[in-house]
Design a protein around this nucleic acid. Structure first.
Lengths: 152, 152
DNA sequence: TATTGTTATACTCTATAACTATA
DNA sequence: TATAGTTATAGAGTATAACAATA
């Protein structure tokens, strides 16, 4: 039996925006993770770290962890593996030798581009029912949500 | 130091729609879960189950599990607790005594309404930068994404 | 004394597969 | 023999706090 014979998706949570957001977010995360593992040799968290390094320049591992929404202790193992594979490098900040400046290598940038292509493929499939214009609207709306806002 | 002095949110993932979807979905899930636990005595998964029961009529626990995107074995414990608290009831299907029909009780419906209010509060806070119209657009776009689509 | 990165420990969560009852 | 619900177990994943180096 098909889940959705009548064209109704997400049966059971359609009227609740929060649940839709959580469900769609989890769907893209799960599928992206699966595709990356199968094709790219990374996982979703690796990809997040690389994307953050591509778009920001965190001044320390702690800041990187915060930008990734991850605990400092979790980043360590991820970076260990990425560094071992030549995808990132850690350099000590000369002004404060406690800090590690993490950077993408040239190889790392190539790996990230491949990962982007894989993730965009998954994304195109999940968003197949939306026009390019609508995907742009979705992107713009999500960009305007401040996930760092403190809960009152 | 503020994360976002220039109005730029989600630094590090802004250009990647998939990561934004995953990040925003995870943010609302985490905050909803926290608020529900603190105020409502439920967690996010409990809320999902109740919402699915409210909007659908699953003919078995297996179907309920599928609608919740959860493993059958996970639903058991959740329903045990919800049933113990009088929020749901399990009845054997008279046509097939292997199946459990799960239903919200009247009390359960009241609990769900309270949970909806809590979650909507969290949602309003997270989406504070969007107008009511834009929240409607977001809802409509997400509704049109078919998370049950099979990965090719 | 405070902060950065790291490590170790304990805890939670989850997936898996057996098991019972019913079909 | 197959399916629905349940239970038990092992394994993965995570949070927490202690630790060493630097400020």
């Amino acid at each position: 039996m098909a889940i959705d014979p009548t064209g109704v998706n997400q049966p059971g949570v359609r009227s609740r925006l929060s649940l839709l957001m959580a469900l769609v977010g989890s769907a893209i995360a799960d599928r992206g993770d699966e595709a990356l593992r199968a094709t790219g040799g990374l996982d979703a968290m690796d990809y997040m770290v690389l994307a953050v390094l591509d778009e920001s320049e965190p001044g320390s591992q702690l800041e990187l962890a915060r930008l990734c929404g991850s605990a400092p202790g979790k980043i360590v193992g991820i970076l260990d593996q990425l560094e071992q594979r030549g995808i990132v490098v850690r350099e000590r900040d000369p002004h404060d030798r406690r800090r590690s400046i993490v950077r993408l290598t040239a190889d790392g940038r190539t790996v990230l581009e491949g990962a982007d292509a894989i993730v965009e493929g998954v994304e195109a499939e999940l968003l197949a029912d939306l026009t390019a214009d609508e995907r742009g609207q979705l992107h713009d709306l999500l960009r305007r949500i401040d996930v760092s806002r403190t809960v009152a």
